[in-house]
């Protein structure tokens, strides 16, 4: 590869592509990917619907209960991280590097807290996924969301590190904007999960 790079260094590049839409490609790509993600959740909600409504299993399973309150607080934590990442984005748009760094760091920490509380909940909840079908679907939905939080946190970590290294500028900040869209999606999805699994 390296050698090839040298031989073809004089190669001219492709002609610039025509821009036929105002949407930027990475943003559009992320939005479409989020449609796929929503559908993954849709499939898991289908499972939830069938077990809870069609099979008519009691919810939650007899003798178990779900910690609505703790999860509620956790919801608030996750939602506030949406605000902080938005703050980070507006800051860098205005050239405020401190806002960027502080926003990213607090978003990351809030997300981490959420994950920690969630794991703690698993440990203390008192039933396992292989006890009942209700347990299965509870762990699957929250776990699927948890997996998305982990992926999101991975992206946030990279963005945070890069913002501390001085990357991004008011003109070029797509690298943080796109993961940011994903993070907003993770937050929004949690509201749906929380409402259906805990509240309803």
């Amino acid at each position: 590869m390296e050698a090839a790079a040298v031989t073809h260094a004089e190669h001219h590049g492709p002609p610039p592509a025509h821009r036929s839409s105002r949407v930027e490609a990475p943003v559009l790509g992320m939005l479409l990917f989020i449609i796929s993600e929503v559908m993954i959740f849709g499939a898991f909600f289908t499972a939830y619907f069938f077990i809870r409504v069609v099979t008519h299993d009691p919810w939650p399973a007899h003798g178990t209960k779900l910690p609505e309150a703790v999860a509620g607080v956790n919801t608030a934590i996750l939602l506030s991280s949406s605000l902080t990442i938005h703050w980070a984005l507006t800051s860098i748009k205005n050239g405020n590097r401190f806002g960027l760094k502080a926003g990213m760091a607090s978003t990351f920490l809030l997300g981490l807290t959420f994950l920690f509380v969630q794991i703690n909940e698993y440990v203390h909840i008192g039933f396992a996924p292989h006890d009942t079908a209700q347990g299965t679907i509870f762990y699957s939905l929250t776990g699927l969301h948890g997996a998305h939080v982990i992926i999101g946190l991975g992206a946030l970590l990279i963005v945070t590190i890069r913002s501390f290294r001085g990357h991004y500028s008011p003109e070029h900040h797509q690298g943080m904007e796109v993961p940011g869209i994903y993070w907003h999606f993770v937050d929004a999805m949690w509201i749906v999960v929380y409402t259906t699994v805990y509240v309803l």
Binding site: T55, H62, T132, T136
Partner: peptide
């Protein structure tokens, strides 16, 4: 137990 119809009363998959 997504698909286990024999878990027990009222705790079944579909």
């Amino acid at each position: 137990h997504f698909f286990d119809a024999f878990v027990g009363d009222h705790n079944n998959g579909n």
